[in-house]
Amino acid sequence: MVLLLKKGANKKDIEAIEKKLYKEKALSGFNAKKYNGVLSLKEDPLTSQLNLRNDWERDIS
């Protein structure tokens, strides 16, 4: 959206532009709380993460 504010605009014009700017809903971020407690883990999350990261070092054969 492009709004033009011309030099010498009066207070009424500025307020109209502000209304247009703040009328649009701000983008909301990701709601991580929605997924809080959804997974039930059998081991410590940090241990699980380290195992996944070190998986490529293991000899699978």
Rank of each mutant, 00 (worst) to 15 (best):
K7M: 04
F30T: 11
K33S: 08
A9W: 06
D13C: 00
S61F: 15
K11T: 13
S61K: 15
L27G: 08
L50I: 13
P45V: 07
K11V: 15
E18M: 13
R53H: 12
A9Q: 12
E15L: 15
E24M: 08
L5D: 10
K34G: 07
F30N: 05
S61V: 15
K20A: 03
K6C: 05
K7V: 08
E24G: 04
P45W: 03
G37T: 04
Q49R: 13
D13F: 00
E43F: 05
L52N: 11
N10M: 07
K42M: 09
N51K: 14
D55T: 08
N36F: 10
K20I: 00
K11N: 08
E15A: 14
S28H: 10
D55H: 09
E18R: 13
G29Q: 03
M1F: 05
K7S: 11
N10G: 12
F30S: 03
L4G: 01
I60M: 06
W56H: 12
D13V: 04
P45S: 03
S28D: 12
E18A: 13
E24R: 12
L41Q: 03
R58F: 08
M1L: 10
I14R: 09
K19I: 02
L4C: 02
K25D: 12
E57W: 00
E15C: 05
K12M: 01
K42E: 10
L52D: 12
V38T: 07
A16E: 08
A32E: 08
D59Y: 14
A9L: 07
K6Q: 05
A26N: 11
D13T: 14
N51D: 14
N51I: 08
E24P: 01
K7F: 05
S61M: 14
K25E: 15
V2M: 07
S48T: 04
T47R: 11
L39I: 01
K6F: 05
S61P: 15
L41S: 01
D55L: 10
L39G: 00
D55F: 11
D55V: 02
S61H: 14
T47E: 14
V38N: 09
D55Q: 13
E15D: 07
Y35G: 06
A9I: 09
N54I: 06
K25W: 02
L21S: 04
A32Y: 09
I60R: 13
N36C: 03
